[in-house]
């Protein structure tokens, strides 16, 4: 008989499901959904590629630079790439609306290239990636990031040494 009370209460409360897709569905802010990539923050360290269990993230060298590739349909939404990214280059948004027609499957990817540039210090061909901020005290200012971006690894080290901080 106890259950009749619960039954009546649940009946009065009405349905607890949401009428998706005809109405909005509740999504928490921390929901781990579609991966977003911010090219300007990427250091090219490839940590995300190494921790990606299904192999959804790949880097390859092209004539233009280092290409970041991420396949949404291979992603398992584990969040390891975001956790081990030294900058905020990779982020899982709360967007989970990823159903698509089969014909669009090759478009379900992120393809961005970190371009090659000539080092402003020595003129050597180098990747225009963001500098790695780990262990840099005080942290880089936005101007310093842009300055380091156009330098080769050796000139970056030199600039850090002149800055008087342990790299």
């Amino acid at each position: 008989m106890n259950f009749l009370r619960i039954f009546a209460r649940n009946l009065l409360r009405g349905p607890s499901t949401v009428p998706f897709p005809f109405g909005p569905a509740w999504t928490p802010a921390r929901m781990r959904g579609r991966v977003q990539f911010k090219l300007s923050s990427c250091t090219g360290c490839r940590a995300c590629e190494q921790v990606c269990a299904p192999g959804a993230i790949r880097f390859d060298k092209t004539p233009e630079g280092l290409r970041f590739m991420m396949w949404h349909n291979t992603c398992v939404f584990c969040g390891m790439c975001e956790f081990y990214c030294p900058t905020d280059a990779i982020h899982q948004s709360d967007d989970w609306h990823m159903a698509h027609a089969v014909g669009e499957k090759y478009g379900m990817a992120i393809r961005e290239v970190i371009p090659y540039t000539a080092c402003t210090g020595c003129g050597m061909k180098t990747l225009a990636s963001a500098p790695n901020p780990i262990g840099v005290v005080p942290p880089f200012t936005p101007e310093e990031v842009e300055q380091q971006r156009n330098q080769c690894p050796a000139c970056r080290k030199k600039a850090l040494a002149e800055r008087g901080t342990p790299s």
Binding site: P28, R32, F77, M80, F83
Partner: peptide
């Protein structure tokens, strides 16, 4: 399930652990 989704970001595979601590 809502708690898991709000705090960890997923209803089942909460992804709390990593080597050396939590995520």
């Amino acid at each position: 399930q809502d708690v898991k989704e709000s705090i960890f970001g997923n209803r089942m595979d909460i992804g709390a652990n990593t080597i050396g601590g939590v995520r």
